[in-house]
């Protein structure tokens, strides 16, 4: 094959590698003489040298074999037998191979000794430090928070007067001692004739206006609590009886009769006030006793009942929210001077 511009690259590579046959060197040099541009190209290509990098494989030792790492086909079968990787037929064949060859039997006995057994005397020394008790901590934490809220609420409840507002005259009557007419007769005040009481009442009221600034000593004759009775019987009477009134004649039998009538009337009209409020204990007991049969009594239901009780007592100043599962998720307190809310559980 003659060298020309279409195939000169193969000749160039062979020339540079020193593989160009001797009988072609003359033709090659003649070609370069006749093609000076390709001569320059050959000079440029021959100048390019890629030096070999000195990379060393670090783990060469792992690839080396010695008498401990060398294995045979028998080793492979022995390990497979130990690991139960052989089929039943191969196991039988392997066992027969062992019995027929004492050397292989000895080799396999060494294999059998390679099974590792854990050293149970080695124990982890800090096992106790790994144990966790987060649930208990959380319960105590939240229990303490809830307890703190209850203490605050109880303190507020103890300080504030949540009883319903009462009529001032009724309150006055409650606070006043009941003085019988006989006791009154022992004092400075003269007994009032019940017959003339109606007559006295009008000027008495007028006098009350006049003597408004004088000290008051209130006395009432009965303990009626109905509004009607209050108007009629809970009269504020001045100790200083108007002197200008005409003197009354003391008739003790009338006074006693009047008092007895008052007592009878009081007993008939006075009814035991309805107990509107239950104590927390009573409320919780009622919740427990009257709970629906299909509703289990749980700690959560007790908490809800207790919070309901506290919310009711505090005039809804304390409120709580429940999550989708009905568990209390947040407790809030809203008063004029203090407002806060405590989330009980984190939503995950």
């Amino acid at each position: 094959m003659n060298i020309d511009r279409s195939n000169y690259e193969v000749y160039f590579l062979d020339y540079l590698d020193g593989n160009l046959p001797d009988d072609q060197i003359d033709d090659f040099l003649d070609f370069l003489t006749s093609n000076p541009d390709l001569r320059r190209e050959l000079e440029e290509v021959s100048a390019i040298k890629i030096p070999a990098e000195n990379h060393v494989f670090q783990n060469k030792q792992a690839l080396l074999k010695n008498e401990l790492t060398g294995s045979t086909a028998f080793d492979s079968r022995a390990v497979a037998f130990m690991e139960n990787d052989l089929s039943e037929e191969d196991q039988i064949a392997f066992l027969s191979e062992l019995t027929s060859n004492p050397e292989k039997e000895k080799q396999f006995s060494w294999f059998a000794k390679t099974r590792l057994n854990p050293d149970t005397t080695i124990e982890f020394p800090d096992k106790a430090s790994l144990l966790k008790k987060p649930a208990r901590k959380v319960v105590l934490l939240w229990a303490s928070r809830v307890a703190a809220v209850f203490v605050l609420l109880f303190a507020g409840w103890a300080v504030w007067d949540f009883s319903p507002e009462q009529d001032s005259s009724l309150q006055l009557a409650d606070e006043q001692p009941v003085v019988s007419t006989q006791e009154r007769s022992k004092g400075n005040r003269q007994p009032v004739n019940p017959v003339s009481e109606k007559k006295i009442e009008q000027p008495l009221v007028a006098k009350q206006q006049e003597l408004a600034n004088e000290p008051i000593s209130t006395v009432q004759s009965n303990l009626g609590k109905s509004p009607a009775l209050k108007v009629e019987t809970l009269m504020v009477q001045r100790e200083a009886i108007p002197e200008k009134l005409e003197p009354l004649v003391y008739k003790p039998e009338h006074a006693l009769a009047r008092e007895q009538l008052d007592l009878v009337e009081m007993k008939s009209s006075w009814t035991k006030p309805h107990k509107e409020f239950l104590t927390v204990d009573e409320y919780l007991a009622e919740k427990v006793l009257n709970k629906p049969k299909d509703e289990p009594l749980t700690f959560g239901s007790l908490i809800s009942a207790g919070l309901d009780a506290v919310a009711s007592v505090s005039n809804e100043r304390l409120d709580y929210e429940t999550n989708a599962r009905g568990k209390v998720s947040e407790i809030s307190l809203n008063t004029r001077i203090l407002a806060f809310s405590i989330p009980l559980k984190k939503e995950r």
């Binding site: 080799q107 060494w110 000794k113």
Partner: peptide, 15 residues
Amino acid sequence: YIYRGRVFLKNYIGK
């Protein structure tokens, strides 16, 4: 790895 480990141990014991 199990195979190589067992062979190594077996050879060690055998030695």
